[in-house]
């Protein structure tokens, strides 16, 4: 129980600290913080399925991209305010998750990962050729109607905090038990009364909804979206990296991973020719020496130093 309060306290503290960022009037700080928030929101969304439910979706970029396009359609064709367009983005992505669930949930393990990846790629190619929504040229948002960079930052921060809070609420709940049970052993979960399809669908839809919100908010800020980059698998790879680096199946992990990746990409931006090599090398080192990610490593560190045999074993990283 105490730990729960500590968790919520920490979230409130971090959120409050992040709220002060625009006050520094440092555009670079705001820029880094914005992408940090974006990555945290997306990583938490993916962590809910990939980390807690064992549904390793490699098609997350599709939900992000659908949110972006739904927002573009809402703004351009229906002239809705930005806030409404973001909500529309989330809802469209969630609806898409329902639509593909009947197909993708038939696949297990690696086949689910490949299936979602293929569907996302198919959607990307479809969007490239769908002239109504701009085809390869993409769609624009009216630039003059856009909000200030600070406002976009607040929106993204709200999404990041909201996504984190959602995971914090779900994990210890009844649903959270079903997700984790299903992740660890699908058949055992069913033997204990868990309805697999319904549980998977719930997690998938919540996750897609968050990704859609983030995509829609980001698209409004981008001002111009086109299918190649907005549906790019690099979004998926990026957030999976963040979750793995930070610590999969933990709440703090995606935040730690996002901070790590943000710092890395900012510091390495100056070493253009080397940055891919260095990034790859760091990733390999982390996976090799910290298989539970940075946060998992930190959690295990005290017991590891103490040298107890149990120290190497994981104990409920979900709790933190």
């Amino acid at each position: 129980m105490n730990r729960t309060y500590v968790g919520w306290g920490a979230l409130a503290l971090v959120a409050a600290a992040m709220l002060t960022v625009p006050a520094f009037n440092d555009r670079y700080m705001l820029f880094v913080a914005y992408f940090l928030a974006l990555n945290v929101a997306l990583a938490q969304s993916w962590n809910l399925v990939g980390g807690y439910s064992g549904l390793v979706s490699l098609g997350h970029a599709a939900f992000f991209g659908l949110g972006a396009y739904a927002a573009a359609v809402a703004v351009n064709f229906l002239s809705v305010p930005i806030a409404v367009s973001i909500l529309v983005g989330g809802l469209v992505a969630a609806a898409a998750a329902v639509a593909v669930s009947f197909l993708t949930f038939r696949f297990l393990g690696i086949y689910f990962a490949i299936g979602t990846l293929v569907l996302a790629e198919a959607l990307r190619l479809w969007m490239v050729n769908w002239e109504l929504l701009g085809g390869a040229q993409g769609m624009q948002f009216p630039i003059h109607a856009s909000l200030s960079v600070s406002t976009f930052y607040y929106i993204m921060l709200a999404l990041a905090v909201g996504a984190t809070a959602a995971v914090m609420l779900i994990v210890p709940s009844r649903l959270g038990f079903a997700l984790r049970a299903m992740r660890d052993n699908e058949e055992s979960a069913q033997n204990l009364g868990v309805n697999l399809f319904r549980t998977k669908l719930t997690a998938f839809v919540i996750s897609a909804f968050i990704a859609g919100l983030v995509g829609a908010a980001h698209a409004n800020r981008l001002g111009h979206i086109e299918p190649y980059s907005i549906f790019s698998a690099s979004w998926t790879i990026g957030i999976v990296n963040i979750v793995i680096i930070g610590g999969i199946g933990t709440i703090v992990g995606p935040v730690v991973g996002a901070v790590f990746v943000a710092l890395m990409s900012e510091y390495l931006a100056d070493y253009a020719s080397l940055h891919l090599v260095i990034e790859g090398l760091l990733l390999i080192l982390i996976i090799r020496f910290m298989p539970y990610g940075i946060w998992g490593f930190v959690q295990r560190l005290p017991r590891w130093i103490a040298g107890t045999s149990a120290g190497r074993r994981a104990t409920d990283p979900e709790k933190v």
């Binding site: 049970a181 992740r183 660890d184 058949e187 033997n191 204990l192 868990v194 199946g249 409920d316």
Partner: peptide, 23 residues
């Protein structure tokens, strides 16, 4: 076939939450 990354108590709670009346 345990839920390996859940505690012993949590393993049983799944059954209580889903296979039994306590919600």
């Amino acid at each position: 076939q345990p839920f390996r990354r859940m505690t012993v108590l949590e393993n049983l709670m799944v059954g209580k939450l889903y296979g039994h009346e306590s919600r």
